[in-house]
Amino acid sequence: MELSLVDDDTDGTAAEETISLALDGVSYEINLNRHNATKVHQGLDSWIASATRTDAGP
């Protein structure tokens, strides 16, 4: 069994989520703890609500 620990890319604490996003044709991933991931999701919610989804995901 292998245990892999990932740090939050913004503050070095233990990450709990990896967020993938794309902007202007460039894809990004960022590892975040629960608090920082919530801030990203809340910050993007209004923009996503107005956007058109372009993939076939769930």
Rank of each mutant, 00 (worst) to 15 (best):
G57L: 10
E2G: 08
S46Q: 13
V26D: 07
D7K: 15
S46L: 10
R34Q: 12
H41K: 15
D8Y: 08
I48G: 02
L5E: 14
G43W: 03
A22I: 04
T10A: 11
L5F: 13
G25D: 01
T54L: 09
S27M: 01
L44Y: 04
L23A: 11
D24W: 03
R34N: 12
T13E: 13
A56I: 04
K39V: 15
A22W: 02
T38G: 14
N36G: 05
N31K: 13
G57F: 08
S46V: 10
S27R: 09
A51K: 05
T54M: 09
T38A: 15
S20L: 12
E2M: 04
G25H: 00
D11K: 03
S46I: 07
T13V: 10
E16R: 10
R34K: 15
T38Y: 13
T52A: 02
T52M: 00
P58S: 02
K39T: 15
L5S: 13
A56E: 09
T54I: 12
T10M: 14
I30N: 03
R34L: 11
D9N: 12
A15E: 01
H41L: 14
T52D: 04
W47V: 12
G12W: 02
E16Q: 13
E16S: 14
K39G: 11
S27L: 05
T13M: 10
V40L: 13
A14C: 09
R53A: 06
I48S: 01
D7Y: 10
V26G: 01
Y28Q: 05
S4E: 13
S27F: 04
Q42M: 14
A14L: 14
T38D: 15
T13F: 06
R34F: 07
T52R: 05
L21D: 05
L23E: 04
T13H: 11
D11M: 07
N31P: 03
P58H: 00
S46T: 11
A56G: 11
M1C: 10
W47G: 00
A15L: 09
H41Q: 14
N33M: 06
S20M: 12
G43N: 03
G25C: 02
D8C: 15
T52Y: 01
L21Q: 09
I30C: 07
W47E: 05
D55T: 02
T52S: 02
H35E: 15
V40D: 00
S50F: 00
M1H: 14
M1L: 11
L21K: 08
L5I: 15
D9G: 12
S20C: 10
L3G: 06
T52Q: 07
H35N: 13
T18I: 12
S4N: 09
E2K: 11
L44N: 02
W47S: 03
A37Q: 10
N33F: 05
D55R: 00
I48D: 03
E16T: 14
L44T: 06
S4K: 08
G12H: 07
G25F: 00
A22T: 10
A56K: 05
N36I: 01
H41T: 14
N33E: 05
H41D: 15
T10Q: 07
D11G: 06
